[in-house]
């Protein structure tokens, strides 16, 4: 399997894990280790001055995974930009996952706020990973402002409805020149494999692992699924095998034949 490259960095896994909803920092750490994920995302929040902080940064750094902050909690572009700059300070990385989902029922990403925040952050030197709806034109616009990757959703966050947006995802994958990371809504390892079989560069999953009966085992299942999906993609699915594409002599022949 060839390696994933995001923002110029070669990564050994096509799985990105979110860190929310785990029972404990220890369980999170074990799940991340079991998943083989090379990148994990995390949020930035005001410190609870009275409460105890369950430090995740330290343990995750020990695992050697790359930490990618996100702007979750931001209600508009301005807040997202602010969160991104804070995160850059906090972690010392210029990677940022822009996510702006003000609607509390479905947590669907606000396309305009996402676009505006991404544009500003790219100008500010960030490597932007834009979480967005599965809208091919939006993804094209985000690519044009210089994001490092687009992260279109498979279905609403936490819904486990899988690749509902498969049709659009397929178009995005076909047209995109930046990596496409399918994010949100993946509920089962088979869906993760499916996303990679379709040609997605990577996929992100959180709830499906964290809320599983045995998160560490589920993380391992996702690890295997990601490997299966990508290997299958590289092997060339029978329905789209190389021999189903016309050779150049054939192309020329058909051009002539159609005159």
């Amino acid at each position: 399997m060839d390696n994933l490259v995001l923002a110029g960095v070669e990564l050994p896994s096509r799985l990105i894990l979110g860190t929310g909803k785990y029972a404990s920092g220890e369980q999170l750490k074990q799940a991340v280790a079991a998943s083989g994920a090379a990148v994990v995302t995390m949020a930035i929040k005001r410190v609870d001055t009275e409460g105890h902080r369950d430090d995740i940064v330290g343990p995750l750094r020990e695992l050697g995974v790359r930490l990618m902050p996100n702007t979750s909690g931001a209600r508009d572009a301005r807040e997202a930009v602010f969160a991104a700059r804070l995160s850059r300070e906090a972690l010392g990385t210029d990677w940022i996952k822009v996510e702006v989902h003000p609607g509390q029922k479905y947590l669907l990403p606000d396309p305009i706020a996402t676009y505006e925040a991404s544009r500003e952050l790219v100008r500010d030197g960030f490597k932007v990973f834009a979480y967005c709806g599965a809208d091919p034109e939006l993804c094209r616009a985000l690519e044009e402002v210089g994001v490092a990757a687009v992260m279109p959703l498979g279905s609403p966050i936490g819904s486990a409805r899988g690749l509902e947006t498969r049709g659009m995802l397929s178009i995005i994958i076909e047209q995109s020149h930046v990596p496409v990371v399918v994010d949100a809504g993946i509920g089962a390892p088979s869906e993760a494999a499916a996303a990679l079989e379709m040609g997605a560069a990577a996929l992100m999953v959180n709830t499906a692992v964290a809320a599983a009966g045995d998160p560490v085992a589920m993380a391992r299942a996702f690890c295997l699924a990601a490997e299966a999906g990508r290997t299958a993609y590289e092997a060339g699915l029978a329905s789209r095998a190389a021999t189903a594409r016309a050779t150049s002599p054939m192309e020329r022949f058909l051009e002539e034949a159609m005159k």
């Binding site: 016309a246 054939m250 058909l254 051009e255």
Partner: peptide
């Protein structure tokens, strides 16, 4: 339609 037919036939 020849190109399309050729692709379909191959698949």
């Amino acid at each position: 339609y020849l190109k399309e037919m050729a692709t379909l036939s191959m698949q």
